[in-house]
């Protein structure tokens, strides 16, 4: 019962503070809010019904594996406490590295190289890391990227092959909820970047794709940054 109340309250708080999108895709928010509201009403009703003197039908715990169920209950309670007491957060670079930023095939068809080839330069300012990553998979011909300025926002994930000189500007791509978040990023070449920036920091990067000077990295192209500025984490950090 207490768990139900905890999760209902926690979800309601998330909904009110507009932070549900840290956990689920925006298209599910309405459904979630409606069901949680119904759940909340029923919950309050059953609390009232109970205190109005109906008999308590609390079951005695099953004889088997009682210790196990206590451990489970403690874990569940710990999670509930974490859910209530800690502010929500996005996934970090630890998970991004776990899920392999460079080899992801998310949004394979978001941008078509042939269609993009002749687009005016202004069109690229709205391109996200997903759009660029999608183009990178289609062509690594450096002349294709001439006159196509890159300007993207994302968080820093160190490259696994050349962590000193290359990092990925990354975003998580969410189809349903944070569980299925797929990291996507584009490589940035900046020798000794960690002297200036930390992993997980949110940055805005401008520049153009050039042949990757790093010998350790297997990425043929990387952005030569003309400007990297730290930015605040966007209010909806995931891409959909």
């Amino acid at each position: 019962m207490v768990l139900v109340a905890a999760v209902t309250v926690a979800t309601a708080v998330l909904a009110v503070t507009n932070q549900l999108q840290l956990y689920i895709h925006p298209r599910y928010i309405l459904f979630t809010v409606i069901m949680v509201a119904i759940g909340g009403v029923v919950l309050v009703a059953s609390l009232i019904a109970r205190s109005a003197g109906q008999e308590d039908s609390e079951e005695t715990p099953g004889r088997a594996s009682r210790a196990f169920s206590y451990i489970g209950l403690v874990l569940a309670a710990a999670l509930a406490v974490g859910m209530l007491a800690l502010p929500p957060a996005t996934l970090t670079s630890a998970t991004a590295q776990q899920r392999d930023v460079s080899s992801t095939t998310v949004g394979a068809d978001t941008q078509d190289a042939a269609a993009v080839a002749s687009a005016p330069a202004a069109a690229f300012s709205s391109f996200t890391v997903i759009d660029w990553a999608s183009l990178l998979r289609q062509t690594t011909d450096v002349s294709f990227y001439r006159d196509k300025p890159v300007s993207v926002v994302g968080f820093i994930v160190p490259d696994s092959e050349d962590p000193d000189n290359v990092f990925y500007v990354s975003r998580f791509f969410v189809t349903c909820c944070a569980v299925d978040a797929q990291p996507t990023g584009i490589p940035i070449y900046l020798p000794d970047w960690s002297a200036t920036f930390d992993a997980d920091a949110w940055v805005q990067v401008s520049g153009t794709f050039e042949t990757n000077p790093s010998s350790a990295s297997t990425q043929p192209l990387a952005v030569q940054p003309s400007e990297i500025t730290p930015v605040e984490q966007p209010s909806d950090p995931y891409l959909y």
Partner: peptide, 27 residues
């Protein structure tokens, strides 16, 4: 809040995400 280590924070985020996603269907 004190910042949690990345992995612990992600564990929490992922678990809560599963709960928030499943909750309306459970109800």
């Amino acid at each position: 809040p004190a910042a949690l280590p990345n992995r612990l924070q992600d564990l929490l985020t992922l678990s809560i995400s599963v709960i928030v996603e499943s909750l309306p269907f459970v109800i």
